[in-house]
Design a protein around this nucleic acid. Structure first.
Lengths: 154, 154
DNA sequence: CTGATAGTTGAAGTCAACTTCAAGTCAAGG
DNA sequence: CCTTGACTTGAAGTTGACTTCAACTATCAG
C-alpha cells in the first residue's frame, strides 16, 4: 500500500472497474491524466475516479469516446466535472435517450401493425425498407437514430 | 436486360438496396444463394429479394447477421420466409424491442432522478456503475441489454 | 537484498459487417 | 468482332474501443 494519496493504475482499475489497459488507452486519448514516478509508473490523483465515473456514465448513456472527450473539453480548465457540469450535461443526455426511446417505440409499433400482413415489400414495408432508398414519403424513413443502427462497417 | 427471370448481382443490388459487395458477403456467410452462369457470374432467383427484405428487416430491428442466419435456419427446407414465418419471428422481435425500450426508459428515469444530485458515486450511482461490479443489489445492475451497450472491444 | 507482484512500452490483434482494391474476365448491343 | 460496362476473385482495409502480447523494469514487504 502506498502511504501517499496517489493511486496506482491497479488501484484505479479496481476502484473504477476499468481494466488497466483501458486506463492507459484513455490516457493516450487524452481523457484522463496521470503523473509519473521517477521509475516511470503512473500515479493518479484521487479526482480521476470522478472523471472515470463521468466517462462510464456517458458510455452507459451511449456516447462515444469522442463525444465524451468533447463533453469534458467544454469544462473550463479541463477540470474534473462538478455537480453543475454533470447536471447540465446529463440534461442533454436525457433528450438523447428520449429520442432513442421514441425511435424504438415507432419501430415496435410499426412492427406491430405489420405482423400478420407479411408483406415485407421492399417498396412499402417500413421494416424492409433500405433507409430512404425507396420511400419518398411515408414510413420507413430514418427508422432508427444512428447509434441504434447496426454498424455498417463503413 | 436479361430475358430470363434470373437477376444479376447489379439488379439485385439495385432492387434490394444492398451493395453488390454486401450480397457477395452474404453469400459467403450462407445467408443467400445464387446460381452461376457458365462464365461464373452470379444469377439470383427472384425470391432472393424477399429473403433480403427479411434480412434488412431483421437488421433494422437490431439482430446480428448470426442471429438472422439462425432465424433463417429455423425455416424448414431453408425456404424463403413466408407470411407465417415472418409473423412468428417478428413477434419475438417485438418482445426484444419492448425489452430494449424498457431498459432505455429505466436508464432515462434514473438519469432524471440523478440530475441535480451530482453524486456520480462509483459505489451507488446507477450511471457510473460498472455493470454489477459494485452493486450487489439495487440499481445499476444490468443497466442496458447487450446490444445497447457500446462495444467493449472484447 | 531479494523475490513476488505490479507496472512499463509499442505493436499487433479482436469483433462485426462490410468495403475497397487490383487485376483481370464475361455479356451483350451495335 | 469489338467495345463498354458489369462482373469475378482473394486479400486487405475500415471503425471504435479496447485487449493481448512479449520483453522488460519498478516497487515494496520481509
Amino acid at each position: 500500500m502506498l502511504t501517499t494519496d496517489l493511486l496506482t493504475v491497479g488501484e484505479v482499475a479496481h476502484r473504477s472497474g476499468f481494466a488497466p489497459s483501458a486506463l492507459r488507452f484513455y490516457e493516450r486519448q487524452g481523457l484522463v491524466h496521470a503523473t509519473r514516478t521517477s521509475g516511470g509508473q503512473r500515479r493518479y490523483e484521487r479526482n480521476v475516479l470522478r472523471r472515470l465515473a463521468f466517462i462510464r456514465a456517458a458510455r452507459n448513456v451511449g456516447l462515444t469516446l469522442d463525444e465524451v472527450a468533447a463533453a469534458l473539453d467544454t469544462l473550463p480548465d479541463k477540470r474534473t466535472p462538478t455537480k453543475e457540469d454533470w447536471s447540465r450535461l446529463s440534461r442533454t443526455w436525457r433528450q438523447r435517450l428520449t429520442d432513442e426511446i421514441a425511435a424504438l417505440t415507432r419501430l415496435r409499433d410499426g412492427l406491430e401493425s405489420c405482423i400478420g400482413c407479411g408483406c415485407l415489400s421492399l417498396r412499402s414495408c417500413a421494416f424492409s425498407n433500405p433507409q430512404d432508398h425507396f420511400a419518398q414519403t411515408g414510413p420507413g424513413a430514418a427508422l432508427l437514430p444512428e447509434r441504434l443502427r447496426q454498424p455498417t462497417g463503413r
